[in-house]
Lab assay of single mutants.
Amino acid sequence: MATGGRRGAAAAPLLVAVAALLLGAAGHLYPGEVCPGMDIRNNLTRLHELENCSVIEGHLQILLMFKTRPEDFRDLSFPKLIMITDYLLLFRVYGLESLKDLFPNLTVIRGSRLFFNYALVIFEMVHLKELGLYNLMNITRGSVRIEKNNELCYLATIDWSRILDSVEDNYIVLNKDDNEECGDICPGTAKGKTNCPATVINGQFVERCWTHSHCQKVCPTICKSHGCTAEGLCCHSECLGNCSQPDDPTKCVACRNFYLDGRCVETCPPPYYHFQDWRCVNFSFCQDLHHKCKNSRRQGCHQYVIHNNKCIPECPSGYTMNSSNLLCTPCLGPCPKVCHLLEGEKTIDSVTSAQELRGCTVINGSLIINIRGGNNLAAELEANLGLIEEISGYLKIRRSYALVSLSFFRKLRLIRGETLEIGNYSFYALDNQNLRQLWDWSKHNLTITQGKLFFHYNPKLCLSEIHKMEEVSGTKGRQERNDIALKTNGDQASCENELLKFSYIRTSFDKI
């Protein structure tokens, strides 16, 4: 039985969820670079991206490699990797027998973001014989899940209580170790020597080791999670996991709180800001991140802002960003909400898709409305799209047979046209069989910064309504002859009103 693990408890099935942008060198404390989270699957090609990484700022997932063999891993080693800020997950990587050479110096898994409450997941690794993470000293947050690894031993010899604050939620089941077939031998045991430290858990006094050649490092209890030197002297209180010299914040392997210019500090002093819960960055760093993602459509890219001495992905609820200094300031009234469309555009074809934009005031991208039916549609669209004030790209209304009016965009005031449909149009209306009105132009103002209007096959939309939009939106004169079809717009509506004058002759039985 794995020490510190839980057996036999019912657990939810383990679901495996399925960018080499360097964020800056980590400095003297770390020998390499800070790398983003990685999802490495199918083959070993991307694994080489770990070569210079000291910190993975995010998670590391290595999974679904069915053609790899043990010899493929023999020359692979990433000794610079010290810390993973989120979680480490391995799933069905064939041929991998140990992690001792792959990650010989991995010391800390912070667990800032977890995989279903777990910071370390080893699942269905069919050839893994031992973990071998002999320098792993601290899992700051989260638990361990090690399950269905039929060859995995050296679990009962690990004292997880020396690595985690609590072992109650560890789930370590259905491994070879369960069948008591392992016969784990710690260093020196074969020669009758006791080389590794022994600890007591559940009444068992057991030597602690990761492999037959690597003991588990056990520091004096007084050192807590700070770690200790090879001689057993406690590291500085700002260290986490390990250090090369005692009581020196510049000799830590990793930091308990924050890293700044080669030393570990309790908090980031001005003019620095907390970033990702582990390091200090200056304003320029946060500003660069903001600008890199301002026009990016890459998933996970955030326009970072500053709030409460932190550089964070977005302002919290009730705050909006001051564009001059990136500071989050309290909103006066309802907060603006910028919604970034991942692929640059979004099609609204149902109430469900409209709900995804609920509360958005600025759309960074283009909207395509293609709704053919739905219950209580006008009210639903207004509830979900009615706060949109600005669209950076274009607005396209296409084959939306259920629409009679666009009044559900009740606050839309600006279409920038930074991206144009077919390279020309910022407003595009095609084949809307029941569209009769755009907006009530006596109450609604709309500016279209650039781009043209396109109207074709809107049989109940009168040309007068379209011409009014040209005047109000500032697009009059931009359109070419064929942009607004004269014969297919309003051709099934009563669009022309003329005053009919009647004269009559009164007659009676005795007068003409």
Results as ranks from 00 to 15, higher is better:
residue 102 L to P: 01
residue 202 N to E: 08
residue 120 L to C: 05
residue 32 G to N: 14
residue 185 I to M: 11
residue 143 S to M: 13
residue 174 L to H: 15
residue 233 L to K: 11
residue 171 Y to M: 15
residue 132 G to F: 01
residue 107 T to G: 02
residue 68 T to H: 09
residue 106 L to W: 02
residue 57 E to T: 05
residue 148 K to M: 08
residue 100 K to H: 15
residue 310 K to I: 07
residue 179 N to M: 06
residue 213 S to E: 10
residue 138 N to P: 01
residue 325 N to C: 12
residue 35 C to N: 00
residue 229 T to G: 04
residue 89 L to R: 02
residue 237 S to W: 08
residue 90 L to T: 06
residue 333 G to I: 04
residue 210 W to G: 09
residue 261 D to I: 01
residue 197 P to L: 10
residue 142 G to S: 02
residue 45 T to Q: 10
residue 238 E to F: 04
residue 264 C to I: 00
residue 288 D to E: 12
residue 164 L to W: 03
residue 264 C to F: 01
residue 250 T to D: 02
residue 72 D to C: 13
residue 144 V to E: 01
residue 204 Q to A: 12
residue 226 H to N: 08
residue 103 F to A: 00
residue 83 M to V: 04
residue 182 C to I: 05
residue 94 Y to T: 02
residue 120 L to E: 00
residue 179 N to K: 15
residue 134 Y to P: 06
residue 285 F to I: 02
residue 221 T to A: 10
residue 261 D to E: 01
residue 178 D to Y: 13
residue 162 R to C: 14
residue 287 Q to N: 07
residue 171 Y to L: 08
residue 40 I to L: 11
residue 123 F to Y: 09
residue 188 G to D: 10
residue 49 E to Y: 06
residue 81 L to Q: 00
residue 336 P to W: 08
residue 227 G to Y: 13
residue 134 Y to M: 13
residue 104 P to W: 00
residue 199 T to K: 07
residue 240 L to A: 07
residue 136 L to W: 01
residue 162 R to G: 04
residue 31 P to M: 03
residue 230 A to I: 13
residue 206 V to Q: 15
residue 307 H to T: 02
residue 224 K to G: 10
residue 315 C to P: 00
residue 138 N to S: 14
residue 258 F to W: 08
residue 69 R to E: 07
residue 28 H to L: 09
residue 308 N to F: 09
residue 100 K to P: 02
residue 53 C to Y: 02
residue 263 R to V: 01
residue 299 Q to R: 13
residue 107 T to M: 06
residue 330 P to E: 04
residue 42 N to D: 10
residue 252 C to Q: 00
residue 305 V to G: 08
residue 199 T to R: 10
residue 212 H to V: 05
residue 220 P to L: 05
residue 183 G to F: 07
residue 137 M to H: 13
residue 56 I to F: 00
residue 201 I to Y: 13
residue 199 T to G: 09
residue 107 T to A: 07
residue 105 N to W: 02
residue 54 S to G: 01
residue 55 V to A: 05
residue 228 C to E: 02
residue 102 L to H: 00
residue 161 S to V: 08
residue 61 Q to V: 05
residue 264 C to E: 00
residue 121 V to E: 00
residue 244 S to T: 04
residue 78 F to E: 00
residue 170 N to V: 10
residue 111 G to I: 01
residue 329 T to R: 13
residue 267 T to Y: 14
residue 54 S to N: 15
residue 92 R to E: 00
residue 106 L to D: 00
residue 75 D to K: 05
residue 315 C to R: 01
residue 208 R to F: 15
residue 272 Y to R: 02
residue 32 G to E: 08
residue 277 D to H: 14
residue 250 T to S: 06
residue 122 I to D: 00
residue 142 G to C: 00
residue 281 V to D: 00
residue 203 G to T: 07
residue 94 Y to P: 13
residue 161 S to A: 15
residue 276 Q to M: 04
residue 130 E to C: 03
residue 212 H to N: 13
residue 124 E to S: 09
residue 104 P to M: 01
residue 247 D to M: 04
residue 275 F to Y: 09
residue 256 R to Y: 07
residue 322 N to S: 10
residue 96 L to A: 02
residue 197 P to S: 11
residue 304 Y to S: 03
residue 224 K to W: 02
residue 303 Q to I: 11
residue 292 K to S: 11
residue 66 F to Y: 11
residue 150 N to E: 07
residue 180 E to F: 07
residue 206 V to H: 10
residue 300 G to F: 07
residue 170 N to H: 05
residue 204 Q to D: 14
residue 178 D to S: 08
residue 104 P to H: 00
residue 183 G to S: 11
residue 58 G to E: 00
residue 128 L to G: 01
residue 308 N to A: 08
residue 165 D to V: 11
residue 123 F to N: 06
residue 95 G to K: 03
residue 305 V to Q: 03
residue 174 L to N: 13
residue 160 W to M: 13
residue 184 D to M: 05
residue 148 K to L: 15
residue 263 R to Q: 00
residue 306 I to K: 01
residue 237 S to C: 09
residue 150 N to M: 05
residue 287 Q to I: 09
residue 117 N to P: 04
residue 284 S to H: 05
residue 315 C to V: 00
residue 32 G to S: 03
residue 104 P to E: 01
residue 330 P to W: 04
residue 46 R to I: 03
residue 251 K to L: 08
residue 178 D to N: 15
